[in-house]
């Protein structure tokens, strides 16, 4: 369906950022690349301006927490979309939980402003250089990042519910 195949996208990217594309996969046909976190800004800016790929629409930014992966607990996922070539691209940057910092992409896409604030609010990802990195949906006085996996949905001190037998935490 796409005018440009995933192989061509990967080939083109490898010409410029071979050292920074650490791995690639294609779950359900969507090219997913792991990139060096320190190069995220550069890669996204290049993708926007590249005349061949024209990957110039930011679909969304999501953060994911994998507490078991040492030193790469936090993932920032950028989903980009090229409308002219009709392909989607997913970039993942793995960050350590001790210092989950990554460059902001607000100067490239204004729309990233709230998306980054949301990831900060719920996961504590620190987007360096963000013009206004505050909590967005939660209360300002909150002192933890509620979407991290150590915060369970239900109160753990409850004794009236025992879900052990159903493999639930």
């Amino acid at each position: 369906m796409s005018a440009i195949s995933n192989e061509q996208v990967l080939k083109r990217l490898n010409e410029f950022f071979e050292a920074d594309i650490l791995s690639n996969e294609e779950p359900f046909g969507l090219l997913t690349l792991e990139i060096t976190p320190s190069k995220s800004y550069e890669i996204i800016e290049w993708l926007k301006n590249d005349t061949v790929l024209q990957c110039d629409f930011l679909t969304n930014i999501a953060a994911i927490h994998y507490p078991k992966d040492t030193n790469r607990e936090m993932v920032v996922v950028y989903q980009l979309h090229s409308w002219r070539n009709n392909f989607r691209l997913r970039l993942k940057a793995f960050l350590p939980i001790s210092n989950p910092s990554i460059a902001t992409i607000v100067p490239i896409y204004n729309g990233a402003n709230w998306m980054e604030r949301e990831s900060y609010d719920f996961f504590g990802v620190n987007f360096t250089g963000h013009p206004d990195l505050r909590r967005i949906l939660n209360e300002d006085s909150m002192d933890y990042f509620p979407m991290r996996k150590e915060f369970h949905l239900e109160d753990e001190t409850r004794e009236d519910k025992d879900d052990r037998f159903f493999g639930r935490f």
Partner: peptide, 29 residues
């Protein structure tokens, strides 16, 4: 564009589910 970004680890519930909510994104402007 209403998007669902679903990550499953094979269990009974999603490992992570993110909604791409168009309102949230365009209200910034």
């Amino acid at each position: 564009e209403l998007g669902y970004y679903l990550i499953s680890d094979g269990g009974r519930n999603p490992y992570r589910l993110q909604f791409r909510r168009p309102c949230f994104i365009y209200y910034q402007a």
